[in-house]
Design a protein around this nucleic acid. Sequence first.
DNA 1: ATATCCCGCCAAGTA
DNA 2: TACTTGGCGGGATAT
Length: 325
Amino acid sequence: MASRDSRTKDPLYSRKEKSLSVLCTNFLRLYNRDGVESIGLDAAALQLGVERRRIYDIVNILESIGVLRKKAKNQYTWKGFGAIRGALKVLKEQGLKEEFDTYDANVSNWKACSLSSDSKMKWQEKCSEPDKSEHRREKSLGLLTQNFVKLFLCSDVELLSLDRAALALLGDSNDPTAMRTKVRRLYDIANVFSSMELIEKIRDPQSGKPAFRWIGMERTSKYGSSAALDVKSSKRRVFGTEISNTHEKHVLKEFVFGPFTPNVTNSEAHLNKNHRRIPDWENLSCAYQPQYRNQAISDLFHHYASAWKSWYVEAEEKQQTGPAS
DNA sequence: ATATCCCGCCAAGTA
DNA sequence: TACTTGGCGGGATAT
C-alpha cells in the first residue's frame, strides 16, 4: 500500500519510467550477457524493482519469440536473441499454413480466417472438446504476441495500426469491450517489441494515425551468438540511469548491449532533432514486395514517412542524470 | 479529445 | 490449502 496512489500523489511520478518498454530494456540489459543461463522470476522482479506481475508480462512475450524458455516454476532459461530468427520462421510458416492471412481484400476489413476469440481453431478439435484448459491459452499474452507477429510476417501489410490488428485478431468482433481489451494488450506487446526494435511506431501518412512497422531482423549488424556481445563498437549514450522505478538504487547501472541497439537516444539535452537518431535503421527503405493482390495494403503503406520516426522514440531514461557521483 | 497503457484485483493453475 | 500465473479492464497519464 505504499505505492497505491503514488500516481495521484507523487508529483514526480512518471508513467514512462514505469513502462513495459523500459522494463523490457532493463530486463534484456540485465540478462543478455555471458554466463546468464537461468532466470528466476523473483530475482528479476527484485533486480528490476517491479511488481512480480510485470515480470510475467515480459517473460511471456519474450518466450513467445524464443528469447526465453520456461524451465520450471519460477524459472526460465535464457535462449538469447539468436533464437528469434528461428522462432519467427516457424511462426511465419505456421501462420501461412493456417491460411491466417490469405485472400480477402478490403481496405477496411481484414479477414483473419482463423485465430480469433472463441469460434476459431479449425484445425481439429474445433467443436468437440470443451477445452477448459485451452481456453486460457487462447487468451494468453503469448499467443496474442505470436499472432500479432504473424500478422506482419504473413501479410503484405507493412504498416499496421493496433486497432486494425485487434480487429483482425478478434475475427471481426463487434464487441467494443473485447476490442478495447485486445488493444490494451497489443499496446503491451508493442512496447516490448519497440524496445527490442522489432517494430517501430510511425505515423500513418494516410490516416494520420499511429501505426507500427515491422523491422524484424533486417540488416541488423549484430545479433551474433546469444552471448558474444561486441561491447567495443557501442557508441550510443551511456545509459547512466538504471532501473529508475522506485528509485530502488544501485541495481545495475550501465550494461552494454550486444545484439541490438539500445533504445535510440533520448531527448533531454536538446529537443532539436538535428542529430540523426536510429543509427542502424538509417533509412527504412524497406522495399516491400510488389507481389500482393490485397488492395488493402495499397491503402495502408504508401509513402510511410520515414522521417517521422523521431516523434516517438521511447527514450525513457532522460530524467536527471544518475546519482551524479 | 484521443491515444496510451499502468496497476493490481482476483480467478485459474499447480504443488 | 498456499502459492504461482496471468486475464482483465478501471481509470490515470501522455499528446
